[in-house]
């Protein structure tokens, strides 16, 4: 039994599949195609130790989702990592300000990503 559960929110099914496969070796992985689905999962009371949120998503984007989660006392302590294909430092600032614990720009090394998530969970 893996000790931690991650919730990955990304509109790209390929990315979800990739992350689920790779992170799945160390963590229990839940995936959501969009913000609404992610909030559903959280509302269902599924154990979630860390959130990975893609910024560019149709409908509610990653920033709005982060703001909602960080504004909710029930979920605000769940560490959240933002995922983006954009490298603008403005977006990075914005994400960190909203309460994201980390910010990762695609493409990235999946091993390194796993290590950073472990580190975050340990710190928590």
């Amino acid at each position: 039994m893996k000790p931690h559960t991650l919730l990955i929110v990304d509109d790209s099914s390929n990315i979800r599949r990739l992350l689920a496969h790779n992170l799945g070796r160390k963590f229990t992985v839940l995936t959501a195609e969009n913000a609404v689905e992610a909030l559903d999962i959280l509302a269902r009371g599924e154990k979630t130790d860390l959130l990975v949120v893609d910024i560019s998503m149709p409908g509610m984007d990653g920033f709005s989702l982060t703001a909602l989660i960080k504004g909710n006392p029930e979920y605000k302590d769940i560490p959240l990592v933002m995922l983006t294909a954009k490298d603008g430092s403005e977006d990075r600032e914005k994400g960190l300000q909203l309460g994201a614990a980390d910010y990762i720009t695609k493409p990235f090394s999946l091993d390194e990503f796993a290590e950073r998530i472990e580190a975050l969970l340990k710190r928590h």
Binding site: S12, N14, I15, L18, L19, N22, S56, A85, K86, K106, P107, F108, L110
Partner: peptide
Amino acid sequence: HELRTPLFSILG
């Protein structure tokens, strides 16, 4: 941004 997404998938 548009290039990175498929590239990330391919690389991954």
